[in-house]
Design a protein around this nucleic acid. Structure first.
Length: 491
RNA sequence: CGGGGUGUAGCGCAGUCCGGUUAGCGUACCUGGUUUGGGACCAGGGGGUCGCAGGUUCGAAUCCUGCCACCCCGACCA
């Protein structure tokens, strides 16, 4: 039977790629480095968007939209920002095509060269700050709390479905504030929003922290992040929130008259999460059977599979199913009834397991007689027969339980794969044998960080916000350190 | 851009070393029948510029030359 996925434990990479394709989430496009997100995969992203967007609205943010193209000169206004992004940008140089005089097809019209090249946005700080300059005169215009849902392009050399593609979908929030404190508060608030989303909706536990200087966003004063651990022991940065200081305000000359009547530069933040979260979701929970989706993000939470021999039997079942389905939908549960006669029940079972549907109800003649249904949980792969009239009551609780236990399983996995060490030898041994997060002392220098990265491929994922003060010595240099940081190999 | 690999039916592959009828297998697809509580079975059927271009040869998926594409590992990164 050639239907199974590659084993997760044997070849994580193939397992992931196969799963993404077989669960109908996405595929590589013919266009270099780009991805086609298929309807089922996109439905998950839409669920994420809806939940995240609501959290933004609840914290006072509004959506807006800024241009896809950035004039080259904008990008060069903030020195470190350019340096960070210049290498990976797509550039528009012409605005017209014409018939090829030497044959069929079209060529770029050399007459139609742009005066100034346009960069396809890799991120929008520059266009947005250029716009904010016109929006802000006085402290009364502040704060500006804006988010945009958009696509961005980064010409990555190597791509992986959802985790790294040349074009990806994301949201980027860009806020402007009158004071430093307010901007920092905003930065941390949004980090908290991301952490809550990840844990409460995705069921993925994360560590909140701040990036070391070398991992910092180009143009930021501080980059905060949430770091998640995948099942292969590698870390994944799931979201970032940047305190920009006055860097972009200075680069774009965004000043305002403060209460005291003097001019001051605006303080900024930016923060984002992307379709990479779908990748995180897949890698955090799925198994050899396929995807495991937390109910809150599943395109549908329950699938009903009828088991029938004849048209009449299907009709009888369908009648009951309509009843059950309605009762569940009244409770806000999304239900899909798959009454196709072109696929057999066993095939459907396997298919919905591959797609990670949290709960499956099977109902056949036997159940009709006894007023029962068979309930199967995707996360634990357990089955039980329950009285149909208890469903409306029982399923909402069960879904909550699934949501919770998926998170707890991931949390337990992280706990098992988080280790503490004080020696470099053990550090290397842990990375090679177990992977996962390694808590170790670091002397705070970029040199040490770079050496460790070079020798072990592990990077400092973050300096945890809740790190306890603890004196120790750097595992690499032996120099003093006052707290442990998190190392891991990462995506 | 460096190192390795692969291009043959929608997908996965064999065949290439050592050239030889009509290019094959699994799966998917279509038709008919029997089936249906864990990816059904039987029978029949359709589907191929063998990555592209050129060359060698009576004859090329197979040998030679050039090109292209994709994948994996590295550098870059949400």
């Amino acid at each position: 039977m050639a239907k199974g996925l590659p084993k997760r434990s044997e070849d994580y990479s193939s397992w992931y790629n196969e799963l993404v394709k077989r669960a109908d989430l996405a595929e590589h496009s013919a266009v270099r480095g780009c991805m086609v997100i298929k309807p089922y995969g996109y439905a998950i992203w839409e669920k994420m968007q809806a939940a995240i967007d609501k959290m933004f609205k609840d914290t006072g943010h509004s959506n807006a939209y800024f241009p896809l193209f950035i004039p080259k000169s904008y990008l060069s206004k903030e020195a470190s920002h350019v340096e960070g992004f210049a290498k990976e940008c797509a550039v528009v140089t012409h605005y017209r095509l014409k018939q090829d005089p030497d044959g069929p097809g079209v060529i770029v019209d050399p007459e139609a060269k742009l005066e100034e090249e346009l960069i396809v946005r890799p991120t929008s700080e520059t266009v947005i700050w250029n716009t904010y300059k016109n929006w802000i005169q006085s402290y009364r215009d502040l704060p500006i709390l804006v988010n945009q849902w958009a696509n961005v392009v980064r010409w990555e050399m190597r791509t992986r479905l959802f985790l790294r593609t040349a074009e990806f979908l994301w949201q980027e929030g860009h806020t402007a504030h009158a004071t430093k404190d307010e901007a920092i508060t905003e930065t941390l608030q949004m980090l908290e929003v991301y952490a809550r989303f990840s844990e409460d909706f995705m069921g993925v536990p994360v560590i909140k922290g701040v990036k070391s200087e070398s991992e910092r966003f180009a143009g930021a004063v501080d980059t905060y992040c949430i770091e998640a651990l995948m099942q292969d022991g590698k870390a994944l940065q799931a979201g970032t929130s940047h305190f920009l200081g006055q860097n972009f305000a200075k680069a774009f000359d965004v000043q305002f008259a403060n209460k005291e009547g003097s001019m001051d530069y605006v303080w900024g933040t930016s923060w984002g999460v992307s379709t990479r979260l779908v990748g995180a979701l897949i890698m955090a929970h799925s198994d050899d059977q396929g995807l495991v989706l937390p109910p809150k993000l599943a395109p549908f939470e329950v699938v009903i599979v009828p088991i029938f021999r004849s048209e009449e039997e299907l009709e009888q079942i369908s009648e009951k199913v309509k009843e059950y389905k309605q009762a569940l939908e009244l409770r806000g549960i999304t239900v899909k009834f798959d009454d196709r006669d072109t696929y057999k029940p066993g095939w459907k079972f396997a298919e919905y397991e591959l797609k990670g549907v949290p709960l499956r109800i099977a109902i056949g003649p036997r159940d009709l007689e006894q007023g029962t249904v068979e309930l199967a949980r995707r996360d634990t792969m357990t089955k039980e027969v329950v009285q149909a009239d208890t469903l409306a009551e029982y399923i909402p609780r069960l879904l909550e339980d699934i949501q919770k236990s998926i998170f707890e399983k991931a949390l337990a996995f992280r706990a098992e794969n988080t280790r503490t060490t004080d020696t470099y030898d053990e550090f290397k041994e842990i990375l090679d044998n177990n992977g996962g997060f390694v808590l170790a002392h670091w002397d705070g220098t970029a040199t040490t960080e770079a050496r460790i990265k070079e020798e072990t491929k592990a990077t400092i994922r973050c300096i945890p916000l809740n790190a306890e003060k603890e004196t120790g010595t750097c595992i690499y240099s032996g120099n003093p350190s006052d707290k442990r940081v998190i190392f891991a190999r990462s995506y």
